[in-house]
Amino acid sequence: MTLLVTVFAAAITTAMWYKRQPDGSMKLGILSWMFWGASLMWLIDAIFEYAELGAAYFTPEPADMLNDLFLGLSVIALALIIWIVILLIWDPKGVIKAKLLKKKEQ
């Protein structure tokens, strides 16, 4: 479930990145790379788990599914926080810089 949630997040952010090109001011690429990296790593995790459990891997207990879904959503929240911090520090549109300079002038 975590893998599935991350793959959806990766595909959606990649589509959003593509739509906004060539304007890269939102730094959506960072978010997209992050989700794809995590998806590939969780894919390996899933392969190893499948090798261990066999077909039972596809029929998880509802409680495990809910926990994995909760984890997947928390992972997305964390990735969004990392992305927003990078965006604000990088400040490609100079919004933060303009705000700070405005305050200085007062």
């Binding site: 989700f35 794809w36 990296g37 995590a38 590939l40 790593m41 990735a79």
Partner: peptide
């Protein structure tokens, strides 16, 4: 970016 992002989320 893939390695840092993936390992951070993992």
């Amino acid at each position: 970016k893939m390695l840092w992002g993936g390992s951070a989320l993992l």
